[in-house]
Structure formats: structure tokens, C-alpha cells
Design a binder for these strands. Structure first.
Lengths: 222, 222
DNA sequence: GAAATAATAGGAGATATCTCTTATTTTGAG
DNA sequence: CTCAAAATAAGAGATATCTCCTATTATTTC
């Protein structure tokens, strides 16, 4: 992790206005952190000392279960919070957060700002919206995972993540995210290829029948 | 649904202080609603006109999927909100909320109070905590459902809901909640009986080997 | 209180998904 | 650039879970 100081810090503070996040000044103790791909922003079960707000990049929330299985709970993108659970709750099992690209965050030392943050309607309103979206997304993912086989959920995921009709997520990440075994993911991807929905190109897959995938994905939605 | 008026309403307002929920007066337009078991407090896809706060009782959040499967997303208990998603978001797919016992709620017409509520730090702070707990719970349920078979999740559910060592939830509710088929739920319950963990008594089950269930349930936790 | 509806019970067979294993290819650290 | 570690690929067999079906027993409704 790198901590930006001096001019570089100033540039980030100026270019990413935090005036719409908080209604009190945080310049005194705010920090700007940069994490490299695969760095751990927060380690599992280690309570963080900061509330983070992601400016650039993308990260992953992981939890390790007692049976050794690892779940990728969700992705975190720019303009989202990290460490808000610990800010709100004295007792909380901290999940692991790993940068999946270079990630730059504002970091507010909760020691200094916790009290003020919890009094600030502007901050709380944004956080409330953020959390309500998260809760809704998790509920959707939960019920979808129980109501539909991988075929449907994978089709949805492929359409969401494909770039220019090319799907190129790593299988290991996807099976943690969709909660299935590596072997099964391979099996369903193979089916998609056999049916002509996808065409394998080295490590990537090209979408050949968009509408077929769309049809599979659509049944998830309301 | 019954709307309490006059003295009855006053009694509820006095006995369940809302002074710790809002920092502005809501007496003018607040209502007190009573729902009977199985009444729909909110119907799926019908945007509600109120923000509810449950005073007494218990309700269930349902969503119906396109394939006809119904998921019981979660239970709602006393001192929890209903309709907060619609308060926060203009666009939201409204889930169905059904009373599972007689349920009494405060009902704030959002038409009158929305603006003020979204400015009120006291309200927002409580709602933020509520939502963060919900998001965490949903994430836990989601990852557990993917990482563990029904055996473990059912053991946990039995221990959580059993009263005096007697488990008496309705199977239809439980399979919507745990996201498995009725048939499979029966199958695993039968296994628990065969192994001597439970003993069937009419419709109910008596817990015979607490520690065995505990062992199965414990692997879910962190 | 009888008829309709919902819940429980369980057989039989299908399928979605997992575990274990072995081999090859790619990536990352030094 | 090299070697170890991680990711990919895929066979084979096990098991968790589902669908469909048919009875029987509660519960609700008129």
C-alpha cells in the first residue's frame, strides 16, 4: 500500500470532491491510499482503522468458511464504501477485501471522525442508500441462487461482464462468486459452447448467440 | 387491516415511544395499523404509501420468481422497518410483505414525511444500522447457502427456532425460506430422525441430540 | 359440518452439483 | 530466465437436490 502525500494527495482531494459526501471538514486527517492488484485492503477478521471510500479501481469482498470454502461475496467499485460495517457496529466479523485492480481510496481514520460521521445527515443519507442497494442486491443474489441453476446465473453473469462480446473472467474467481465448484463451472461453459452460445478462443469466450444467453438470464429478473 | 384511532391509537403512541426514532414531530399524520395473520401488509410490486415501523408481531418478505418459485427472503420482527426501500429509492421492485402473526405497526405517510425523514440524522442513523445488519445477514445467508448443504443450514434453523426443545415450524414455510424443495426437506428431516437427532411427535419434532445438531450448525459460523 | 383447499408423507427416477484425481498450461517471484 | 505455485482441463463416480406423482391428513370457508 502507498500513502499519497503532498501534491499528489492534493490533486486527488481536488479532483474527487468529497464535499458531497460529508458536511464537515475532513481534510485534517484524511489519507489517500493506493493498493495494487491482489493487495489486501482489509484482512479477514482484522478490524480496520479507516472508513474507505473508493475513488478508482475495483475490489472483492471475501469470506472464508470453516470448511475451507471461500466465497466471493461481492465486488466493490468506485464511489462505494469499505469498512462502513465496522464504523457502525462495535461487534462485527470483518470480511477480507482484496483489490482486483489498482485501487485508490480516501481513508478516514475512524478514531477521529466516527462520532461526527454518525451525526452527519448528508453522510448518513448516502450511506443509507448505499447499504439499501447492497441489501437488495444480496437478497436478489440469495434468492436467485436458490431458485435457479447455474445455467441461468452464469448466463446473466456473462452478459454483465462481457466486453465487446468477449467474456474473459477467470474461472477461479467466477466459481467463488457464483458459489459452484470449478468442475461444474467448466461443465456448464462447455455446454454453452456445445450449444453454440459461446465459442472458446484460448482463455476467452466469444458470445455467438446473444439472444440465447439473454433468454437464460432474463428469467432471473422481475 | 384495522386502523387504530382515538384512545387506542394514543395508547400505542405513548407506550412505544417514537421519540428515539425521529427528531421531529410525526404525530399529525402517523397512523397505527393492525394486520391479522396472513394479511398482506404490502403486496408484491405495489408501491406502498407508508413507511412502517413494526411494534408487535412478525412478518415475512416474499418474492415470486418468473419460474413460479417463491422465496421467503427474510422475517421481519418488532422494531424493524418496512417500506424503507421505497422511501429511499424512486425505482424499486417492491417485495410482498405478509403478517405471520397479528402485527401492529406505526405507518408514516411518505407523502408527508419523506423529505424530512431524509434530512433527519437520528432517523438515518437508526435506519443505517438496520440496513447494515440486513445486508450482513443476507450476505451470510447467501454464502452459507452456497457453501453448505441443507443438513447444516437446517440444523442451524432448527436450533434457532426451536422452543423448549420442540421444533414446530411449518414445512412449507421452511422450504421457501431455506430454498429447497418440500420433498428434500422431508428427506433431511427423516435422516435427522433416523440418526436420532430428532424424534417426530405428530407435526412437531423433539430435539433428542442437541450436540449433534449444534455440531452441524456450528460450521456455518465464523 | 361438509366441501374445498392447503399441508404432510413418501416412492421413483432425473439432474445439478460435488469430490477426487491426473495432466497440461500459465503466471509470478526472485 | 527458471522454478514453484496457480489456473485450466477433463474423466469418473458419488451425492444433494429436484420433479412428478399419488395418498392421507389438517385447515379453512361457506
Amino acid at each position: 500500500m502507498k500513502k499519497y502525500i503532498g501534491k499528489k494527495k492534493q490533486v486527488y482531494l481536488e479532483e474527487h470532491s468529497i464535499a458531497n459526501l460529508f458536511s464537515f471538514p475532513v481534510e485534517d486527517y484524511i489519507e489517500v491510499h493506493e493498493y495494487q492488484r491482489n493487495d489486501w485492503i482489509i484482512q479477514e477478521s482484522m478490524r480496520p482503522d479507516f472508513l474507505f471510500y473508493v475513488i478508482e479501481g475495483k475490489a472483492k469482498i471475501y469470506i472464508t468458511h470453516q470448511n475451507g470454502k471461500v466465497s466471493l461475496i461481492n465486488f466493490i467499485n468506485a464511489n462505494e464504501y469499505i469498512g462502513e460495517m465496522e464504523l457502525l457496529h462495535d461487534v462485527y466479523y470483518t470480511k477480507g477485501i482484496q483489490a482486483s485492480t489498482k485501487t485508490i481510496c480516501f481513508a478516514l481514520p475512524t478514531h477521529y471522525y466516527r462520532k461526527q460521521l454518525l451525526e452527519d445527515a448528508k453522510f448518513l443519507r448516502e450511506l443509507t442508500k448505499f447499504l439499501s442497494v447492497k441489501a437488495t442486491e444480496m437478497a436478489a443474489k440469495y434468492t436467485q441462487s436458490l431458485a435457479f441453476p447455474l445455467e441461468n446465473r452464469l448466463a446473466d453473469f456473462i452478459l454483465q461482464t462481457a466486453d465487446e462480446r468477449i467474456y474473459k473472467e477467470r474461472h477461479v474467481t467466477v466459481c467463488d462468486y457464483l458459489g459452484v465448484s470449478y468442475r461444474h463451472l467448466q461443465h456448464v461453459l462447455r455446454q454453452f459452447c456445445d450449444k453454440g452460445y459461446l465459442q472458446k478462443e484460448g482463455r476467452n469466450y466469444q458470445i455467438k448467440q446473444f439472444h440465447s444467453l439473454k433468454e437464460l438470464a432474463q428469467v432471473l429478473q422481475n
